[in-house]
Design a protein around this nucleic acid. Structure first.
Lengths: 142, 142
DNA sequence: GCTTGGCATGTTATCTTATAACGTATATCG
DNA sequence: CGATATACGTTATAAGATAACATGCCAAGC
């Protein structure tokens, strides 16, 4: 977290209080938080309390690889591997909403081939698996 | 389209007028349509005009593999391969919004491996590539 | 040190997407 | 034919997102 911040500084990014706070909020959870949930916590912490405040900070974090947007949930998580330029893949538990980020770059191979054949230029790829985390899978059995 | 319908009938599904109409609307486009865009067309066609009408029909189509939800766009497309039990992958053009569905991706190997190692049970996987379709890529150059 | 320009923050207002809750109709099965 | 389940329609509201504009801050150049 501190290291991510340091790297951001080095890149000449302006790591302002709101942005830092939002990253802290995200980093404290291993689940995806909605923009309004984040906004609530910003309000409590004395920051602006209108949607654009949260969305702008989130845009910044996502643009700079410090956080990811989970499309399936319209929500956000801190990036688990802020160092490398990875294509992230997520495992989302449908029961407890925890989100695990896989470092690996999954099926780019097959999709790339199809895209190339179709003349399609891929700029970004979303890979999100939904299912049960180990803990909730146990719970289901019980 | 007619064949998809036949198959649905065989499975004992109730292919009602609203549901048929929504599938027709989707099938006429090669791009993703938002629920409210669909709703507008339902209204024009004399169906109910409130959001749940569209959302319920869409839920039915998606649940039964006749349409897909594009998470990245919060929108919907007709399924291009309603016959097989495929894991769909999409290529979304960010300029013209066309959505192409890739049939292949039995290659979930890498992600499956990570999930298994983590004890995570995958139930559903979203794969969506965003970029430029061949036509819009040409347009960009011009 | 002052000014000017760019970026970040904050606010209001509004738009889009989605669902809860309830009543009515229609189909299906005993 | 009556009971039950499913679908449809409506009202109301929740949840997610952005446009547009005003204010404040900081840093570069004079």
């Amino acid at each position: 977290m501190a290291s991510a911040e340091a790297r951001a500084d080095e890149k000449g990014l302006r790591f302002t209080p709101v942005r830092r706070k939002v990253l802290e909020i995200l980093a404290q959870e291993h689940r995806a938080l909605g923009a309004y949930e984040i906004l609530d916590r910003l309000r409590e912490a004395g920051f602006g309390s209108q949607p654009p405040v949260a969305y702008r900070a989130l845009d910044f974090l996502v643009s700079n690889g410090l956080a990811h947007r989970i499309e399936r949930l319209n929500a956000f998580v801190a990036c688990a591997h802020p160092d490398d330029g990875h294509v992230p893949a997520f495992m989302i538990c449908r029961v407890c909403d925890t989100v695990a980020e896989a470092r690996a770059t999954p099926d780019r191979g097959a999709l790339d081939a199809v895209a190339e054949a179709a003349g399609f230029t891929i700029e970004r790829t979303v890979v999100e698996a939904e299912g049960l985390c180990p803990i909730c899978a146990d719970g289901d059995k019980a």
